[in-house]
Design a protein around this nucleic acid. Sequence first.
DNA 1: GCCAACGTTGGC
DNA 2: GCCAACGTTGGC
Length: 153
Amino acid sequence: MPRCWLFKSEPDAFSIDDLAACPKKTSGWDGVRNYQARNLLRDEVKKGDVVIFYHSSVRPPAAVGVAEVVKSGYPDRSDGSTESDPPRWFQVDLRYRAHLPEPVTLEAMRSKKALENLLLLRKGNRLSILPVENKEFQAIIRAGGLDPAKFLS
DNA sequence: GCCAACGTTGGC
DNA sequence: GCCAACGTTGGC
């Protein structure tokens, strides 16, 4: 069973539509400059895992789609570092899977019993990459109008 | 190692 | 634009 994650993105910078428009619908998820998130990208997020794509800093903030990890963590050189430098930041590659027919807003997530422990809803949470429980993933995808089983094979 | 100052995130 | 809640930096 793949693990489930939630990746935040400001759609003005990189949206789910941008991902869907990439060649092979695939893009490197670079630019993460937070050590906790870096550790997840380096050590935990694996090829085959599923990702809820979340739009932040827009109204309303919402889960808008699903992606899959097609490449596990590897060095992110978007800071200008080179092969010879020890890697400081890491990225994974994501491939677009689907839009949620009904985006699931932050407010809607707060109102769901199945999501009461969702890390995204924790006060003060600022991590841009969050682990999501399998049942939480299912609840969000179902609320968004899709069958979660389609992504959990 | 402490902690004040500063920067960033992100909902509202 | 505001501001709470962080994370980071750097002087000591």
